[in-house]
Each structure stands twice: as C-alpha cells, then as structure tokens.
Design a protein around this nucleic acid. Sequence first.
DNA 1: ATTTTTGCAAACCTTTTGCATGGAA
DNA 2: TTCCATGCAAAAGGTTTGCAAAAAT
Lengths: 143, 143
Amino acid sequence: MEAATIVDALGHAGYRLTTPRRALAELIAGRRGHFTADELLVESRRRRLGLTRATVFRSLDVLADLELVERLDLPSGEHAFVACHPSQQHHHHLVCSSCGRSTEVADDGFEAVAASIARSTGYRVDVHRLELFGLCPSCRASA
Amino acid sequence: MEAATIVDALGHAGYRLTTPRRALAELIAGRRGHFTADELLVESRRRRLGLTRATVFRSLDVLADLELVERLDLPSGEHAFVACHPSQQHHHHLVCSSCGRSTEVADDGFEAVAASIARSTGYRVDVHRLELFGLCPSCRASA
DNA sequence: ATTTTTGCAAACCTTTTGCATGGAA
DNA sequence: TTCCATGCAAAAGGTTTGCAAAAAT
C-alpha cells in the first residue's frame, strides 16, 4: 500500500489533508504486516513526526470507515490493523503468525458456505468475520 | 448448557470445585445468548452470589481453555463469550444480532474453502476464526 | 498438610473524550 | 472566515496482578 493511495482516498472522501494524516499514511505504507495503534505511535515518535495518541486512533477510525485498513483480532487477543486495498470486493485476510504479513483472500468459495448455513439454520446471515492465520510461504521455507 | 455439564468438565480436568466456580456455572447456564464478564458480575451481585471480578475473569479463562465457552468479538468491538458444547468437533458460532442467542455451526463446508485458500496462496493455514452474525428465525419473524 | 483458588485493591493498557487552539479549505 | 482536525490531559473501560487469607483435596 502506498501512502499516496491513502492520502488520495482521504481527499476523495472529503477529509482534510493534514500533516498528521499524511504522516500516518507514510507510517502505514511502511508497514509490511499488521500493526497496532501503539506501534504506529512509537514509530512516529522515533521518526519525530509528532503524532498524538488521540490522532492515531481518530485517523485509524477514519481509515477503517473508508476500508483502507481493517481491524483484526489476533488469536492472542490483541487488536491490530492491516492496510488493505479499497473499493475492492468483499474479502478476508490471511495473516502470517510469524512475520505478520497479510494476504487478501477473495470471498468466493465462502459465499456458498454462508448461504448453506443460512439455509440449514433458518438465520438470515448479515455479517461474517473470517480471519485466517498460518505461515506464509517464505516463513514456511525458513521454518 | 447445563451448570452440571460445566462443573463436571471442570472436575474432570482436575480443577477444584469451589463455590465461586459452581456459582459461575449457574450464571452461565442461565444465559441464553452471549454475555460479557461484566454482565456475569452484575448478575452475580444481584443474586448475592459473592463473585469477584477477578474470579469471573480467571474462571472464564479456565472455561475458555476447556472450550466450554468461546470468546467472541462482536461487530461492535465488544468482547463477549458464548457457552458451547465441549469435546465436539471444530465449529463456529452464528450469533443473532438482535437477541444474542447463538447457534453452533459445523465446520463442514468450510474446510474445503480453507484448503483451497491454502493451495492458492501457498500459506499453511493453521487457525481460522469465523463468526457469523444475523437474525435468528424467531427474531426474523418478529421483525 | 499441601496446593489451588479467592478476595481485595491497585495497577495496567488500550481507547475515548472535552475543550481550547491551530490549520485546511 | 468557517469548520474540521489536533493536542493535551484526563477519564473511561476492560482486564490483569501480587499477595495474604481461605478453601479444596
């Protein structure tokens, strides 16, 4: 994910392009895998970008609304985020437990499963959350 | 879920059968849908069961280890738990957004999806979390 | 008698909020 | 110039912890 992509999307959505938001876009763009609000904050201090905790949270909130990042609940219970590509169809994330890198996975096959669950239970299924964790190819190789 | 089921499972796993644990088992047995640690605590105070906050959390932790309850992350971001049947095969929860009731869903069709995702990405998929939310039949009817 | 479990209260961590100031449009 | 966004610092949740006392085995 490039910083410019994030900045553009913010502008396009009518949000003001402030220095903190540009800085945060850079930070997120520099991340390979998932990250927490606190990690961004620490990194911003290291680089002297002057972001505030409140701003990090508020901005992540905006970015989540725009689907530029997605909230993850890691198996450890930690909350984290991953950058993801906007205006794309519904998808899920496959996260490497070792390096944290994440891959977007199409929802394809899963739609049918959800439909069949709806049919057999009588529920109307509105939302589903699917998160997959494992080892990415390169971490498998070095394991 | 019956309280005795929980108590038996605790005993079977070598945990001591204390008054607070029995009380908690009752509280959980009395729940229809999902619940938070705090809800159990409030209910325990109402019924004068004398449970402590720390004990509720510690016990839920044990029960989660034994897979007698499962942690949920609701779409709202809240953490909650649902009682579930132990020693059963891997399954997921379908939660009613209206009444909170939850249904266990077999993993069947999903296994194939996970396998195909592993194949196409090269990842080794170890863990997946799937949570479904919607309206249960009875809430659909009254909607 | 031994070991686990509990209560208590404080600590901890993450996330949110109010309000005055500063900056973008 | 108008309205949105930020900083600050405090509050708010939710969850965990240390330790001595109490209870289970």
